[in-house]
Design a protein around this nucleic acid. Sequence first.
DNA 1: TAGATAACCCGCCACC
DNA 2: AAGGTGGCGGGTTATC
Length: 327
Amino acid sequence: MTAIEAHRVAVLLLDGVSTFDIGVPSQIFGAARDRRTDAPLYDVRVCTADGAPVRTAAGFTVTPDPRSDGALATADTVVVTGVKGPSAYLGPPPSPALVHVLRDAAAHRRLVSLCTGAFVLAAAGVLDGRPATTHWSYADEFLARHPAVRLDPGVLFVDDGSVLTSAGVGAGIDLCLHVVRRDHGADVANHAARRCVVPPWRAGGQRQYIERPLPGGDSGAVASTAATRAWAAQRLDRPLQLRDLAEHSTMSVRTFTRRFREETGVSPARWLAAQRLDLARRLLERTDLSVDAVAGRAGFGTATSLRQHLHAEVGVAPSEYRRTFHS
DNA sequence: TAGATAACCCGCCACC
DNA sequence: AAGGTGGCGGGTTATC
């Protein structure tokens, strides 16, 4: 076995590309290094569909990497960046050649989209029947145009195996870190995050959820589990069962579970675990409480349980987490 | 580390 | 007729 071959990443820029998205894959994948040798683990090439320069959303022009010839067709991972403005999702559909490349990547390699890049994937038909996400403010339009896609606008990113999509801007960082983590483990991903001065803790987990950011006004219904969430957040140190939460909201367990999921995008237990982990992290960062005490305050039954959750999320033990982030 | 036990999750469906 | 509700079953996941 000779030198480790770097995983090849082709970043596709389309006309009107969001300037933020241009840098994200290069930064994150570029920061992923072998822990022993510091050798780069990814070989990132910035491409355009036809090799010609493209104009960015900000108006300046970007020339693709001269080494990018053929990279789209051969890269292990193809990243489709977001496009600002209507060109990608209202303009002409992707060329047959591009459709072929995207389908091939989805089927035999790996296909990643950032932000509105999901529109391009959908137009190429690779998202039909798959779970996916995109920038939340385009969710309605996306669903109207691509009803066969199982769009979930309430998540930061969706990992569907060989096809991965992310929500707006910052979520692209999370997705790239997630990919690094999947390929090389939490340790490498954490170091890449640190190198980029990005919080590594959003890099963990299989799927990342956020409070559903859909604009208000839909049917005027107030989130009916919000009060219970606020109530629960004040008593994380105590045991809280689904039954208790449902009781507080004066709903049956079944209805509460259903509404909670609709409103937050996560199940109650997952939400609760995330809240507890947040609290535990703050306590590790800001206090000198023992790990046992932190576990107790955050409502984890045992320190072992806290260790498991923290490890799943960030990839490190409580003591190491504290060593890194205690101020 | 492993396994018993408990809790959760969600499709299904009858019932307002 | 249509839509919300909530009990149930049992596969999945968490806990100790």
